[in-house]
Nucleic acid binder design. Sequence first.
DNA 1: GTAGGGTTAG
Length: 660
Amino acid sequence: MAAQKYVMGSLFRKLIKPIIRPPLLIRQPNKFRQEEAPFIPFSQLQQIKLLESEITHTLDSCTSLTKIKQAHAYIIRKGLHQCSYIIAKLLRMISKVDVPMNPYGISVFSQVKYPNPFLYTALIRGLTIDGLFKESVLVYISMRKDGVTPVSFTLTALLKACSSQMNAHLGRQIHGESVKLGGFSLDMFVGNTLIDMYVKCGWLDCGRRVFDEMPDRDLISWTSLIVAYAKNGDMGSARELFDGLPVKDMVAWTAMVTGFVQNAKPREAMDYFERMQRVGVETDEVTLVGVINACSQLGLSKYANWVRDVAERSGFSPKDNVVVGSALIDMYSKCGSLEGANEVFKTMQEKNVYTYSSMIVGFAIHGLANSTLELFEEMVKKDVMPNHVTFVGVLTACSHAGLVDKGQQVFEMMEKSYGIKPSYDHYNCMVDLLGRTGRLEEALKLIRSMPVEPNASVWGALLGACRTYSNPDVAEVAARQLFKLEPDGIGNYILLSNIYARAGRWEDVSKARKLIREKGLRKNPAFSWVEGRKGDIHEFYAGDLTHPRSGEIDRDLEDLIDRLKLNGYNPNLSCVLYDVSDEEKKRILMNHSEKRALAYALLTTDDGLAIRIVKNLRICEDCHLFMCGASQITQREIIVRDNMRFHHFHDGTCSCHNFW
DNA sequence: GTAGGGTTAG
């Protein structure tokens, strides 16, 4: 019976809609309505309808404040400035055209005596887009005071505002209230926006609950949750949800690809992208940026060219797409190919701050300080405003090249000339810059002069410098702070113990190692990867001899070491920070993952080709020396990307000039 | 009106 009633109800609404829907002067169902709403005869209604469509049409082409003002004057002349529908349209145009909603939009709005819910909503949306959160909530409050019932639109606009303010409490309150008012509490739009809000505010569980309670879900609901899990580092749950999707569109696939990239799983990202292509899902700019980033993380050149090809074939050429182009620059430089990066940079017609910054960072991590500084000047000349990332690039370049004065000059100029306040990242670069040249005390002074409390990465940069300059005293100062800020950061304990080891303070070494054991922390294994002949990837872990061609690798490596020794190479035993015999130290050094990766590459790739090795930790002095020698003896170019920067080994020397 | 995105190093 009840069901029948409902069907009748909706049928009734459908039937009468064209007759009773007042197309213009929609009045609020409030107490004034009956007395004050003017009666419009049917003949006039027809005319007004025509006018309405004419004005709507004009509004669509409003592209500036002047045009909007003209349109508004016209609306007033025609006597339609009280019409919620028309004014709502005007407000929507105002937010599109970048005219401030406050005060112009508000003044237009306040001329309407009886605003309907859609007009209120247009104002709330407009204020939200302008970032005027408080104002949009105030409008909502006055809407409720006036007895105007919010519609589904209103709720999505408000929830979006709450999400941008990270105020899930208020969002929940507003939603709860609307549930009481009835009707649309969990319609798909509201539900999806609610999920998104909870997720963006970090209330993943609440988001999940909304998802579970929604009577109907669509792809958007699923994708929102997939993204939430991915951002939370839970790719397992993301994958589970994704697998459960009967129909997967481009956005859902892209969410997975990007999710893997954000969780530093580039191989899985590539894998998903390939699957996505196999099932014939289209690729757009966003997908491409994801794959390109995956490739940057992998750092292997064969994939780089393939990805660029895919981009071109999908119709996104760096020539006319600044986003794809900038991402490609970053990718090529992280794959060790500055030529590739440069080539893309030159072909790009539009260059923005991302483009320049990517190229600047590219030069910086390859140690080309002069090119970095030149490009920075060019960018300024062309009126592209640098941002904080640009300065990270410039400062990194100064740091890698030991240009202390220049770096300090740039650091000061940042705020004075460009109004960019130094952030942690910039302090980090400066500590690194001072620390690398041995000015540990100065670096410490800089940290102590910071206007905000120094964070872990700043202290970490100092600790790293203490390792290079074997300074256990300053190291202890940094370590004390780090242990407070990152009690579970294994790297800090290892660094400190290595610094003690260098200084021969073995008792302190064992104390530091005991601390690690007590905390149950596990060391990150060191590994390297290298491309095989067919673009396949081979991973080598330090001391792991399970590669199928381990026997040959061992043999060739010993052979290579013997040849290097004839050339004057002497294993640098001080790189082994264990208190063991020299023989054992030599064995440990030989099993460093980058050496094994090199031996494998020499074994399997053709002469004349550059060998590219990517590793997860910083290259040690002995391996650096070894690579220099190997590049001379074998006459192969060797490019190693460690977690800091690139080293190009060529004919016995390295591009970093042994300063890294 | 609702979902996926660009440049950061140690």
